[in-house]
Each structure stands twice: as C-alpha cells, then as structure tokens.
Amino acid sequence: MKKLDISRLCKKYGNFELDVSFSVYEKEFISVLGPSGSGKSTLLHLIAGFISPDSGKIFKDGADITDLPANKRNIGVVFQDYALFPYLNVFSNIAFGLRVKKEPSDVIKRKVYEIAERFDIADLLYKYPDYISGGEKQRVALARAMVVKPDILLMDEPLSSLDAKIREKLLKELRDFHRQFGITIMYVTHDQTEAMFLSDRIVLLNNGGVDQISTPLELYENPKTDFARRFIGKLNSITVNGKTLYIRPENVIVRNSGKFTGKIEDIIYLTGFAEIEISTEFGRVIARDFLRNVKGLKKGDAVKFDLL
C-alpha cells in the first residue's frame, strides 16, 4: 500500500531545479541518496512542509497534503545533529509534541516514561541535551518524534556529524528500531554505506532528478546510469570488441590460470584487502582481493587474471 506518493514535485532555486516523482510503501525503509546539492534536503523539507513546492503534489495515505501546514501533517522529523531544544531537558524535549497537543499532564508523563523505557533513556530524562552523548541524542530525538505517533518518519542525515565507530553502532540501532516499530521511514543521506545498510529501497538523486530507484543489491549490481555507476562503489569500465563492460574490482580475479595478461602498476594496501592496479591491453583495470591473496605480488610483476 502506498504510504506516500510524490508526484512531479518541483522547486526551483536559481539554476537548481528539483523535479521528482516516486512512492513510498507502508512500513518501508526508503533512503534518498545523493551527493550534496542533489536536492535531497530540499525534498525532505518539502515533504515535511517546511517549504512549499512551485508545483506538483504530495499524497499521504491517498490524501493530498501539498498545502497542509507542517504542523498539521503528522510527519515526524529527525534532524541533522538532532535539533534537541537546548533549553529543555530530555523529558520536556520528548513531551514537547504532547504539550502542543494539550494532552493532560498525567498522560504526558505516562507516555514519556513509556517511550523512554522503550528507547532505554529513562535515566536521562532530567538531563539537558548538552550533557548527553551523540548516541543518546539519537534515541532522544527518535523518542521525541515517535511519542506523537507520526504516520511517517523523515530522517535528515542524522549520523553525518558523528565519528565512524559510534556511527556503526547507531546504524544497527536504527535498523532494529525500524523493525521494532514498523514505521515508514524516509532517510536522507549522502553516504552509500548507510543507505545500503538500512534501506529496503534506495532513491538515487542526481541534480534534482531521480536517477534510479531500486533495492540496494540491484543498485550495486545493476547501476543503470553513468551517474549511478560512478557514485556507487568502484567500477572498471572495459571496452572489448567495441562493447563496454562494467566490472566491479572484486570480480577481477588475479590467478595463474587467468585468460588475460597485464602488468602490476601499483598495489594499494587497505584494511583486510588490497587494490591492484593492472595495465592491460584494454587500459587500466583495478582488481580487489584479500590481503592474504596478494602476498608475493609486487609492482612491475606480470600477472594473469580473469573477469567474472
């Protein structure tokens, strides 16, 4: 069932023009992935209702919400850096939406405690946002957005300002959160790893337009446009007999029984694996293999390889 339907949604700023159509399904985790300037934040702000489109329509559960003000849309948002109100403690941050709805204070208290329990932040309720960690902030932001039971949750690059270690942990938390709550989520990011890890489907955005919509695996294995090929991972483009083949580096296998020959130009050692740059009759080719398999190879060696 379609939860959200975006139909020819347009917004222009100077030379930039956003023009997108796509649908989000019930309980789906959909990522909007694109480089900076591709229009993903604008798209999120349009759906949340913070800005209004020049033309086009937004439907939620079949109803046209294009002209509905942001505070009447019941769409939750988790912001970059989480945007917790710095002058309110965690309890009041979470209670904010309930207080706006003028719920009775005992109800507010019960709901805040319940959701805090679920997000494991009950012991933080009387702390201020400046005094809790990045991971805790994410849970508070999720609790604040979820306690008012939104129909859809939008997330705007929530992990972009955190360091790599905590990021990995929070990614897992996010995935578990989505499974537990079963809410429809639209997640905006420029980071392909995040999108791959979290999403049911990915909307690849380029320069204001939708480039490709598919599952993460499909996007990786079968990128349809030049942009998608360049943006997602590394890809060798090899022209053989006038035909262009796109081959991932891990599908270039260096072995003695290989059909093709070449010379090693360089080896770049990375964590756990290495990339081998080979000059061949059809130009430079990059192969990727585990470190243990490239032991003994060195610059200048002649090698044989296969393309899978």
Partner: peptide, 17 residues
C-alpha cells in the same frame, strides 16, 4: 538554526507556538 522551529512544527506546533 532553522532546525529548531522545524522540529517544533513537525511536532505539531503552530507559528505562534
């Protein structure tokens, strides 16, 4: 930062609120 008023709006606050 605009994000604070956006956050409040998304939680249902009117312009006055």
């Amino acid at each position: 930062p605009k994000k604070y008023s956006f956050a409040a709006q998304s939680l249902g606050a009117s312009n006055l609120e």
